[in-house]
Design a protein around this nucleic acid. Structure first.
Lengths: 136, 136
DNA sequence: CTCTTTGCAAAGAGTTTGCAGGGTG
DNA sequence: CACCCTGCAAACTCTTTGCAAAGAG
């Protein structure tokens, strides 16, 4: 197992994750915290994110535009993902946990998490007339 | 735009995708087709998959254990993903397309696709007592 | 003959890991 | 003072891309 010790940087990473609704990637967290912790390393961000996920304190939203995105809000909710700019928004959704049993009966496995997401173009990308993939 | 010409390999890749329920990755398709087309290149598989997705003939199921997985079944359905072995199974789901309008109203964007997936341990990994990440 | 597709190999991008040094309890 | 955590940089994996040759219409 793993005995976990306190770490200032780990606390800061978790706090940064909890105080945003952006569903940041490792890189996003890194650049956000770099000013406060000039000696922060990207590897540390990755390592701590993995711990958070293992501990169930943070959840992965999936890979968006090549980068894995994380969410400290572990309450069930759905996401809207913009395929142009990669923005991830929370949206409300029907309760899906009720389907777990049905899926387990169907597959013979066990369900530990579920994820519902809608992909499309966000309001800003629509207004800017951006095509998929353009971020500029 | 893109004028598309016929290609034996492209047809074979699409056919391989259509005749399986494994939701293969590029690598999986490559190794499956390698015996029939010894000079097949992995780059070609990636290039054709991108075309299929652009043309709407194939859909991405998302990134599972680091590899993007594809599905030629574009009818709406949900997936069960085993976090141990990466297996992806089709499961039935409630109709979600009806939620598109609601999400669009909520976000101001437009929804072009939706995806529902359940993650857990499949029946084989349960029986083998595998932990998450073990594939052996 | 023109334009698309391909193999090959190199380049990219995101993520992981080994190690020596610093932090925590 | 034992063990965890971190910075740094190298290593890895998956995916993309450039180019010259082969294939399709």
């Amino acid at each position: 197992m793993e005995a976990r010790k306190f770490s200032k940087k780990r606390a800061a990473i978790l706090e940064a994750l909890r105080s945003t609704h952006e569903h940041p990637s490792a890189e996003m967290l890194y650049s956000r915290l770099k000013s406060e912790f000039p000696d922060l390393s990207l590897g540390t961000v990755y390592r701590n994110l993995a711990m958070f996920v293992a501990d169930g304190d943070v959840v992965s939203v999936g890979t968006v535009l090549g980068q894995e995105r994380y969410d400290a809000d572990t309450a069930p909710h759905a996401h809207f993902i913009c395929s142009c700019c990669g923005r991830v928004l929370d949206v409300c959704s029907p309760n899906l946990a009720g389907l777990d049993r049905q899926i387990e009966a169907e597959t013979g496995g066990i369900v530990t998490s579920r994820s519902l997401s809608f992909t499309g173009k966000c309001v800003d990308c629509l207004a800017a007339g951006r095509a998929n993939g353009d971020t500029a």
